[in-house]
Write a protein that binds this DNA or RNA. Sequence first.
DNA 1: TCAATTATGAAATAAAATTTCATAAAAGTT
DNA 2: AACTTTTATGAAATTTTATTTCATAATTGA
Lengths: 282, 282
Amino acid sequence: MNILEKIANEIDTFSKSERKVAEVILASPSTVIHSSIAALAKQANISEPTVNRFCRRLDTKGYPDFKLHLAQSLANGTPYVNRHVDENDTADEYTEKIFESTMANLDLARKSLSTNLINRAVDLLTQANKISFFGLGASAVVAHDAQNKFFRFNVPVVYFDDILMQRMSAINSTQGDVVIVISHTGRTKSLVEVAHLAKENDATVIGITSAGSPLAKECHIVLSVDVAEDTDLYMPMSSRIAQLMLIDILATGFTLRRGAKFRDNLKKVKDSLRSSRFERKE
Amino acid sequence: MNILEKIANEIDTFSKSERKVAEVILASPSTVIHSSIAALAKQANISEPTVNRFCRRLDTKGYPDFKLHLAQSLANGTPYVNRHVDENDTADEYTEKIFESTMANLDLARKSLSTNLINRAVDLLTQANKISFFGLGASAVVAHDAQNKFFRFNVPVVYFDDILMQRMSAINSTQGDVVIVISHTGRTKSLVEVAHLAKENDATVIGITSAGSPLAKECHIVLSVDVAEDTDLYMPMSSRIAQLMLIDILATGFTLRRGAKFRDNLKKVKDSLRSSRFERKE
DNA sequence: TCAATTATGAAATAAAATTTCATAAAAGTT
DNA sequence: AACTTTTATGAAATTTTATTTCATAATTGA
């Protein structure tokens, strides 16, 4: 953890003198990294040994080591954090905040992903006879994107964002089919039912959803992506982006598993678009 | 500048002994920040004063100050960079690389966005009688997502990913309508034509595309999102994520412009979903 | 080849940090 | 409240670390 945060957190557990040091440091950390222990002690009106003890209490080896940690905290600058958009933000401000928050959430998501499960999911996908992607609302967008990617692989892929079509498709699925159900909350009733139907018909069900949700319980594999709640403006934001990255990862895993020749094929698919485009004149 | 890079850059201008120090440092900077000047001198087989001179040559005040700089370079850690997926990558590796690359590209995209233009686009959107989103392939996904967001605002919104529907819709558009055309390359013929048709019919055309492209030339406003090419596996990856963030930004700008009362409305829209979901029991 | 310049390290010095230890303050205990 | 124990603190001594000085070695240029 960032040592500045740590100081701020633990300041209540400090002794009186230690608190004085903490305050001086928090007030101007960038000055402190250029101060000697004597200078800092004087600034805080306490003795040098106290500063030293303060450093050790924060699990550093001593004052110089402490300064190193402090320097790193400062350099780390602003690690991405969730920042809420405020009513009076200018375009500059909310743009910055949205980027910040998304990055912070992607960072979170990355840490929460299980590469083991991804590996297994890729296994199943490469062996599938048919792949279906189901989602509603914002997750329909993710399903749509997944279709766009997997479609290139010359595998039968469908995507539905219509409850009835999803149900019919689920009922028609059989062993060897993989059904990917996408829902951030995992609590959308009709999607849980769809997952259930697919499972009953022996399809393999993979959930891109939150762990422990009702939907998760119906899935053979749950790929959960942790993201701070999208509370800002009552719209799904980071969650769907993290889900899209998961799609990218699955698609990438798929192509790698299929080998080099397969990737030449992808190039052909891409090249097939050329005539629909204006030439680039350079 | 990062002091590690600086060392790497200037290594040719160093004397023989200084180069030895540089090599030891570059080989394992994280060890060095915990070494005394004596330890480092010994490691590099040179004397302590040489290390000291080395530090000063790099514009630091001395060895301790140098360590501080070094610590900061390390903390800055690995700024996100584009890393290409390799044939033999494990799930762990490609997952990491995809996250890395996406983050790097979002960082790029953030820097390239013009908040001025965003502001103008938001202006136009809030005044629009009707908003249309057009895209094809991966950009259709973005258009789809945009519809999902703007639809909540109780404004007439359509999205089409069908060329004919797009053309018909464009021809039917009139003054007061805003048409947003999405294309990463900006070279897809049919979309350029759609933009042209919409413009001819006095709609305001906003392009989410690359600056200077044929599509850009047909737009009243061009919101360009710079992203390194998606060359990896012949699939759009980062580009569409950056586009989605731009949609988030536009949607956010929209809601802010509309004021607090409007945002209560959004909450209602979201709450309307409740009965379609399983309750959360805690 | 020889001066001039530059680079280097041993030793001395200076600076900084840490330890030791005595004392003061605070917290318990009767 | 008086006393003991524990904890916190700083002065001084010590140790560690960094820097300076200066003599010598290596390199460069004539």
